[in-house]
């Protein structure tokens, strides 16, 4: 039996004993039923699995569940407010058609939240550069970039 870990996931304290070789993405999807983090590649490049760990975006497919012990994990399911109101980043993606099939979207949104937390007013170039670790096959990124800059504006206000 593996050691017990305690992780705060979307504000809830979770104690579990995942096998040592359990990825954080697998832990979230299969043990906690949080299927919003998607797995789109096996080389840590697509970014569909991005979650926030202690506020920083990470690829949950490239982190062991045990490495998350003691951290605060936010998945896409935990981004909206308690009353269900969308986070400004979610709202901006909706309003600017920043998603199509939705598969890369959770990672894209959480990556963008990390960006705006560091850089409240990113230029188009800064947004594009930041998104290096998030692949979208549907949108051509045009509306994603637009969404993130629109959200940043709301979040600055």
């Amino acid at each position: 039996m593996s050691e017990q870990i305690t992780v705060t996931v979307n504000g809830d304290t979770v104690s579990a004993r995942p096998a040592a070789n359990t990825l954080l993405s697998t832990f979230l999807r299969e043990e906690l039923g949080l299927t919003g983090a998607h797995v789109g590649c096996d080389t840590s490049q697509c970014g569909a699995c991005v979650v926030l760990v202690d506020g920083k975006s990470v690829k949950s497919c490239t982190m062991l569940a045990h490495q998350a012990a003691g951290t605060n994990v936010t998945t896409i399911e935990g981004l909206a407010g308690d009353g269900g109101e969308l986070h400004p980043m979610q709202e901006a993606f909706r309003d600017n058609h920043g998603l199509q099939c939705g598969f890369c979207t959770p990672g894209m949104v959480l990556s963008a939240v990390d960006l705006v937390s560091r850089n409240p007013d990113p230029s188009e170039g800064e947004v594009r550069s930041w998104l290096e670790g998030n692949i979208c096959r549907c949108t051509g990124y045009h509306n994603i970039v637009k969404s993130i800059r629109a959200a940043a504006k709301v979040m600055r206000a």
Binding site: S44, G47, V50, S57, T62, S111, D114, W130, G133
Partner: peptide
């Protein structure tokens, strides 16, 4: 190096 998520880890 890499992308922001790589740099975070």
């Amino acid at each position: 190096i890499g992308d922001p998520q790589v740099r975070n880890r």
